[in-house]
């Protein structure tokens, strides 16, 4: 490390830089090696997920023929799309209320929104289970959608609010001065301005919903298995390359989504800090 307190010599930082570079390389290897091993064995020709015996795509074939996996995927899509649609609308409204209005109880509203993001998932899961059983609401796709909306609203709110915090209300005021109605102002001025934030919030909500295991685990009913629940039962039931094949498909889809959506992420990341 650099000499403490003494004068700065050029080059003192060179050695730490090299160490830092090596360190970063090792961390990336740590992050990616397990995933790559997982993908590698999805192409194994035998049932083993540990001993390589040759190349084959049979597990992908088996995956496509597995009706329960397809059903779980369908459920995940239904839940993800419905929960995202509802949570994005409610979250955007909430963000508008919190950043454009002053009102009594605002601190409470703020706290409630953030509390929903820090509450441990398992507590949210069991409390919803207790709630649905108490009101005798049958567990299934509907309860999963309700729960996913409840835990994603706050994330949408935070992301959209970050976008709003960088804007003052002058554009809206100008629109209204020029005779636009509140609805027109919202649709023609506010919404286009915050759209990147809304999109980023929706994408976040969809991913959170699509990946959620813990909350869904407690409130899914018979026949309403989502993809994460299916993967969990496959791991528990017995490890086979079919899980590797499924994981590979999910991983590749995630990467395509991220690199495709990276423009939104990187732009919103700048605003997002303020909301953390």
């Amino acid at each position: 490390m650099a000499a403490k307190g003494g004068p700065v010599y050029k080059g003192v930082g060179k050695i730490p830089d090299r160490v830092l570079f090596l360190f970063a390389g090792l961390i990336y290897a740590f992050l990616y090696a397990p995933i790559l091993v997982l993908m590698f064995f999805s192409f194994n020709s035998s049932r083993s997920t540990q001993v390589w015996t040759g190349f084959s795509t049979q597990w992908y074939g088996e995956l496509l023929r597995d009706d329960s996996v397809l059903a779980a995927f369908k459920n995940s899509m239904i839940v993800g799309v419905s929960a995202t649609a509802i949570a994005t609308v409610i979250g955007t409204f909430t963000a508008l209320a919190l950043s454009r209005h002053r009102f009594r109880g605002k601190t409470f509203a703020d706290t409630a929104v953030y509390a929903a993001t820090v509450m441990p998932e398992i507590v949210v899961g069991v409390s919803l289970l207790v709630f649905f059983v108490a009101i005798q609401f049958p567990l299934g796709i509907t309860t999963i959608v309700i729960a996913h909306v409840a835990f994603t609203i706050s994330f949408v709110t935070i992301v959209v609010r970050a976008r709003l915090s960088g804007m003052d209300g002058s554009m809206e005021e100008a629109a209204q001065d020029l005779g636009a109605s509140p609805v027109q102002t919202f649709l023609r001025v506010t919404l286009p301005l915050i759209l990147p934030g809304v999109m980023a919030g929706a994408l976040l909500a969809f991913t959170l919903s699509f990946d959620d295991f813990v909350i869904t685990f407690f409130i899914s009913g018979v026949g309403s298995s989502t993809l994460p629940l299916k993967i969990y039962s496959m791991i528990k039931f017995g490890v086979s390359p079919v899980i590797n094949a499924l994981s590979t498909v999910v991983l590749v889809a995630t990467m395509v989504l991220i690199f495709g959506g990276s423009r939104i992420f990187l732009r919103e990341g700048k605003g997002g800090e303020q909301a953390n």
Partner: peptide, 29 residues
Amino acid sequence: LILLVMVPFWTSLLIRAYAWVVILSGNGI
């Protein structure tokens, strides 16, 4: 580099835990 950190961040925790089940098991890597 930051996108490469985001990929595992967005990837199902379940799948990433499964990777370690395979790696650490009896005759795993």
